[in-house]
């Protein structure tokens, strides 16, 4: 356990390390796979809904889709942007670590 802070965490004594208690629901890899599968399904559903609403808008049902700009009028714009943004964010942050990361005690000798 890491350092304890003298900030009144009175019940810290109740923090224990246990490895042989009853397993939680995510200790079963099947449940983890179910969550991931649920995410894939959700992605597919909202993407299909977006494409459908795009076709509907072209067929003259404009109230279902009123793009705020020309960019987000394209089907799947938000899906693509969200995915790419996050991948680039994480890859950039990985590179930042090489420059910015120091050991935890870096500032301790101030």
């Amino acid at each position: 356990m890491a350092e304890q802070h003298p900030d009144g965490s009175r019940d810290q004594a109740s923090a224990k390390f246990v490895h042989d208690d009853k397993p939680g629901i995510f200790d079963n890899p099947r449940n983890v796979r179910r969550v991931i599968f649920g995410l894939y399904t959700a992605c597919a559903i909202v993407f299909v809904l977006d494409v459908v609403s795009w076709f509907q808008a072209r067929a003259g049902v404009p109230e279902l889709r009123h793009p705020d700009s020309s960019m987000d009028g394209l089907p799947g714009f938000y899906a693509f942007y969200g995915f790419v943004a996050c991948v680039l964010l994480v890859l950039a942050a990985r590179e930042m670590r090489k420059v910015l990361m120091r050991r935890e005690e870096y500032y301790d000798d101030e």
């Binding site: 995410l39 959700a42 909202v46 889709r65 994480v90």
Partner: peptide, 18 residues
Amino acid sequence: SAHTIGQLQILFFSALAF
């Protein structure tokens, strides 16, 4: 509905990236 679907795409595909 357009706004909701757009936002859900952002969120689900961000989660997909994670």
